[in-house]
Simulated scan of single mutants.
Amino acid sequence: MKLQFTLTTGAAALCLALTGTTAAADGQAPTCGLNTGEAASGDPIKVGGINGNAPPGDFSGGTDAAAAYFDCVNANGGINGRPIEYIVENDQWNPELAGQVATKLVKDEGVVALVGNGSVVSMAVNAGLYKDEDVMVMASGCAISECYESTNIVSTNQGPLPSGIGALTYAVEELGTTSAACIGFNIPNNGGWACDWMEDYMSSQGLTGTSILMDPTAVDLNSVYLQAIAEGVDTILLMLPAGPAIGLLKVAEEQGGRDLFKWVSPTPLYEPGVAEVLGDYWNDNLHIHTAYPYRAGPLRQ
Score class of each variant (00 low, 15 high):
32 C>L: 04
32 C>F: 03
36 T>H: 07
38 E>K: 15
43 D>C: 09
44 P>H: 12
44 P>D: 10
45 I>P: 03
46 K>W: 07
57 G>W: 09
60 S>T: 09
60 S>H: 06
65 A>P: 06
66 A>M: 11
70 F>W: 00
71 D>M: 02
74 N>C: 05
77 G>Q: 01
82 R>K: 10
83 P>N: 05
84 I>Q: 00
84 I>T: 01
90 N>D: 12
91 D>F: 08
91 D>Q: 13
92 Q>K: 13
94 N>C: 03
94 N>S: 02
95 P>F: 02
96 E>M: 03
96 E>L: 08
97 L>E: 06
98 A>T: 15
100 Q>K: 06
101 V>M: 03
104 K>Y: 06
110 G>E: 02
113 A>T: 02
114 L>H: 00
117 N>A: 02
119 S>V: 01
123 M>V: 08
125 V>Q: 06
125 V>Y: 03
126 N>S: 08
127 A>W: 06
129 L>Q: 08
129 L>W: 10
130 Y>V: 08
130 Y>L: 15
132 D>I: 10
135 V>T: 01
139 A>Q: 10
140 S>M: 08
140 S>K: 06
142 C>T: 14
144 I>G: 13
152 N>I: 11
153 I>D: 09
155 S>K: 13
157 N>D: 14
158 Q>H: 10
159 G>K: 13
160 P>C: 13
160 P>T: 14
163 S>Q: 11
165 I>A: 14
